[in-house]
């Protein structure tokens, strides 16, 4: 599903080049879940952005669903994101001017993959049934993140990329959201790559990797 080979990413800083990723290799199979851990600034989000085709590596290859991202133009990468990926952010990034129902179906509509049964099912599973006409600002933090997860899954992606999805939530809400995320990912059969710095959050995943000094390692290494 996702293959990173010798991926390097460097940012220029006033103090010199900062090697955020330095020859990273990663493989994520279909339906597999992987937690990516690391300290703040270790490059977790950069790796996620590269995997989503939002940015390109300085060196190395990224293959998503068999396509080599660095050879694709921006429109094709956008189409791949639309059709194959679901993205969940720490800050939710819901559209404040769209209702709950419209936010939920936004990506599915963009991908022309709207499925009313699946949308209704998601609304019920997310505990948002009956809140269709509300706007994001009228929801709690936990509800907003559940809505963001629903939006990412509504287009039935093959890979869900989640960047600290519980970072803005209290422990109870975070647990609820994680349970729901795990259950819905199982149900939809998509792969999951989740960035987190919490071992507790990473525990239920199939695999867990740590990003340190620009390289990937098993947590114990």
């Amino acid at each position: 599903m996702l293959q990173l080979t010798d991926v390097t990413k460097t940012y220029p800083t006033p103090q010199g080049a900062l090697h955020v990723l330095d020859g990273v290799d990663l493989h994520l199979g279909a339906g597999e879940s992987l937690a990516l851990m690391g300290e703040s600034g270790s490059g977790k989000s950069t790796l996620l952005h590269l995997a989503a085709g939002l940015d390109l590596p300085d060196r190395g290859d990224i293959h998503l669903d068999g396509e080599r991202l660095s050879t694709l133009g921006e429109p094709r990468r956008a189409a791949l994101r639309r059709q194959q990926l679901g993205l969940v952010f720490q800050q939710f990034h819901l559209v404040p001017s769209l209702s709950v129902a419209d936010n939920l179906s936004l990506q599915a509509r963009l991908a022309e993959r709207e499925d009313n049964h699946w949308t209704q099912h998601l609304l019920a599973r997310l505990g948002l049934a009956g809140l269709n006409d509300r706007y994001p600002e009228q929801l709690s933090g936990g509800q907003q993140q559940r809505l963001a997860i629903g939006r990412a899954l509504a287009a039935k992606p093959r890979l869900l990329l989640a960047d600290e999805p519980t970072g803005n939530l209290d422990e109870t809400a975070a647990d609820e959201v994680l349970d729901l995320l795990a259950s819905l990912v199982d149900e939809s059969g998509c792969a999951l790559l989740m960035v987190t710095h919490s071992a507790r959050v990473a525990a239920p995943m199939d695999r867990c990797l740590r990003l340190q000094h620009g390289r990937l390692a098993e947590p114990g290494e």
Binding site: A52, L54, E74, P75, A78, A79, L80, R81, R82, Q83, L85, L87, F89, H93, L94, V95, P96, S97, L106, Q107, L110, A111
Partner: peptide, 16 residues
């Protein structure tokens, strides 16, 4: 700006 970035992240090409 946030909305534009979200739409781009959700797969809307820049030209569109």
């Amino acid at each position: 700006l946030g909305l534009l970035r979200t739409l781009r992240a959700l797969g809307v090409p820049a030209r569109t």
